[in-house]
């Protein structure tokens, strides 16, 4: 089965996010009031061929743990859906 996978990487709570802070500081000057809690992360999309959803999730989790995220400073979250037929 083909799965469409989206992995979102975000900084862990307590880890400084200077990019998010800088964006937040810039917003009032552009007329956007009321925006807070800006966080900058990464989104990584790919397709994965796996026998079933449980196996696909296990593989993506392993991939995140070993490579896509650095667990010292980052958390990851996956969204997974059955891909469109080729």
């Amino acid at each position: 089965m083909k799965f469409d996978v989206l992995v979102e990487i975000r900084l862990r709570p307590g880890i400084a996010d200077p990019q998010g802070a800088t964006i937040e500081r810039a917003l009032p000057a552009l007329g956007f009031a009321g925006v807070s809690q800006v966080g900058v992360g990464k989104a990584i999309r790919f397709t994965l061929d796996a026998p079933d959803e449980a196996e696909a999730r296990a593989q993506v989790e392993e991939l995140c743990r070993r490579f896509l995220a650095n667990p010292v400073i980052e958390d990851s979250e996956m969204s997974l859906s059955v891909g469109a037929a080729p």
Binding site: A16, P18, A21, V72, I73
Partner: peptide
């Protein structure tokens, strides 16, 4: 540990 972006970007 890890090296994150500098304070102050």
């Amino acid at each position: 540990g890890a090296l994150q972006k500098n304070r102050g970007l």
